[in-house]
Write a protein that binds this DNA or RNA. Structure first.
Lengths: 265, 265
DNA sequence: CGTGGCCTTGAAGAATCTCAAATAATGTGG
DNA sequence: CCACATTATTTGAGATTCTTCAAGGCCACG
């Protein structure tokens, strides 16, 4: 499986997600495994990004609990009490919202170094669910401890504010996408975004393995899974991509980028 | 104009927006008019909401600049340097994003007591534009001063964090709407949301005047203005609404609420 | 080697968009 | 103060995009 090498350090292969996956208790106590930000290979992408040594050491003092999450398990669900922010160490997650009639809307995909759960700050309860798309590992960051730490450091405060604002901006682009793009533009925007994030993590930006199903992509992009599939096929016919199930090779990134209009700046 | 009375304290009538409205300098110095949060009739909806007396007094010490904005003028645009957060005192604003090809996506409408500009924290530059839909008045809150203040008060910090998180949650619902609802559900959700916000401000929840055009509603909801208009007509035929241009009277709020499926909690 | 999940593809249908035209409301310039 | 130009809204008809329904293939797993 040569393709697999593209995303090397991730688990060797994607396990099929069980239909009724066991749920890891809402905010169950993390395992005793502890992690230091200062040693972490993700420190420049993750929470400590932009912090000075002294602040990073203060983060170390919190000794974030580390936890393995298996494919299909949830980290939290809507209404769960908000205690932790979660940083992805490895693997991929989706965030999703559910309507009363069961319709699911995927609101984001999260990879190494990205944070999840910031929507819980508002109400003290999570507003979305976070589900592992493959076996994964996370750091559970106790929010109250983090707040206390922020109280003593304006840099830390700034970093937190930026993280939340970044989330707002991220959602802006998704709204743009959902509100005013057609199927091809949506999928192109999605692939380019993935490509950039993989590149930032040291993976190939033009060849990768999708961790999510067509249905999940469709939900995220506001279209049906058949439309996602057809759009992949269309891109393949236009020689923009090679698609083999979840293996994607981008042949013409520029043309793909032209396929959608980025924001004005 | 009996309907106008429903939204009484607002300016007497909506002025037509000039085609090329003058732009109020990106973050031009506010006028010398100063405002105290502690006296403000919006204090329970706005920034000071949830703060104790001592913190509110500290807010007072910042002496927020107050400014009149006329119909069609912008408070800030994408790429403008981020200096202020703005609180709406009166009037209505829209936030919007623009794609390279000129397509505009409205990402929110803001009324008295609501804050604008939090998306600027991430990059130090605004990511969206804020435009007045009618003559309005705002408080310009210098972000650096606010941060300094937060450094000294954990309550203040918490309030700020909640405000940003609330914005994230708000955008979640919009994504849900854009990603998985049809035209009727979208418009119903929009009207119910407006209705609730007006009610919270002491206005009638079942009769009001829309401050935005069909095109702006359509952009916000991810549909064309003609579809908005047709959906209004459909609701009218179903006896859910009475619509007279921008005057809306909700006849059957429950049925309207059933027309869309709220989030699961 | 059979089963179930995921993906692809086709064909028909539905929702929404586009284009067009009529009407109403409003501000402008005389 | 009136006629006109402009803009906003509504409505219809046809085009388009996307969805729905259905069938078949592939692959991993038991």
């Amino acid at each position: 499986m040569k393709h697999e090498a593209v995303l090397a350090p991730a688990p060797v292969r994607v396990l099929r997600r069980p239909v009724d996956a066991p749920v890891v208790g809402g905010d169950a106590a993390p395992t005793p495994l502890k992690t230091l930000c200062s040693n972490c290979h993700l420190r420049d992408l993750c929470l400590p990004c932009g912090l000075e040594g002294s602040d990073v050491q203060r983060l170390d003092s919190l000794l974030f609990g580390r936890r393995r999450i298996r494919t299909g398990e949830t980290l939290y669900r809507p209404e769960d009490r908000f205690q932790f922010i979660y940083a992805v160490r490895s693997g991929t997650f989706k965030s999703s919202l559910t309507l009363a009639d069961g319709r699911e809307q995927v609101s984001g995909f999260h990879m190494a170094g990205e944070l999840m759960g910031l929507d819980g700050v508002a109400q003290g309860r999570h507003a979305s669910a976070a589900t592992a798309l493959e076996d994964a590992e996370i750091c559970a960051i106790p929010y109250t401890h983090l707040s206390e730490l922020a109280a003593g450091s304006s840099d830390m405060q700034m970093v937190m504010a930026r993280l939340m604002s970044r989330e707002i901006v991220r959602e802006h682009s998704l709204m743009m996408l959902l509100g005013s793009m057609n199927a091809e533009e949506r999928l192109a925007a999605f692939l380019i975004n993935l490509s950039q994030r993989l590149k930032a993590r040291g993976y190939s930006s033009h060849e990768f393995h999708l961790r999510m199903s067509r249905a999940e992509i469709g939900s995220y992009l506001g279209m049906k899974l058949e439309t996602v599939s057809r759009t992949f096929s269309a891109f393949q016919q236009q020689r923009l991509l090679e698609v083999d199930k979840r293996h994607i090779r981008i042949l013409d990134l520029e043309a793909l980028a032209r396929a959608f209009q980025g924001p004005i700046h």
